[in-house]
Design a binder for these strands. Structure first.
Length: 114
DNA sequence: ACGGTGACACTCA
DNA sequence: GTGAGTGCCACCG
């Protein structure tokens, strides 16, 4: 297991119950700014039985990353609602449930030296 | 080495 | 709301 993966797993584990965070925010909190895709990769690798709140990780716009209607999609929506997070049309209002609302913009906003 | 792919994200039309 | 284009990076054939 690479150290980056470990930090990502810890960042995810640190999301409080009833809140959510974006892939980019998780990467940033793991000390890996702009590595959102790596977070997705790590989640893909994690086994289902793992004690990880993977369902609290959403896209930057609050939508569930799985294809709508897929098994993972329904499972994630179910788990979120089970802990009081509002999910409507596969989407969570980050303004209400997001961990750090402006973190993503702060990281990706300054468009790379331009 | 190289091109395609992906549980991502941003801008612009 | 939907797409296309681009940046990003690990992994795979």
């Amino acid at each position: 297991m690479k150290p980056e993966h470990d930090r990502i797993l810890q960042a995810i584990a640190a999301i409080p119950r009833g809140r959510v965070a974006s892939y980019g925010a998780i990467a940033a909190r793991a000390g890996l700014p702009r590595r959102a895709r790596l977070v997705g990769r790590v989640l893909r690798e994690t086994p289902d039985g793992a004690e990880l709140p993977w369902h609290r990780v959403l896209r930057a716009d609050g939508r569930i990353a799985f294809p709508p209607g897929s098994r993972g999609f329904r499972e994630q929506a179910r788990r979120l609602r089970a802990e009081g997070v509002q999910v409507r049309a596969g989407r969570v209002p980050l303004a209400s449930f997001g961990l750090d609302p402006d973190l993503d913009r702060a990281l990706w906003g300054p468009r790379l030296g331009l």
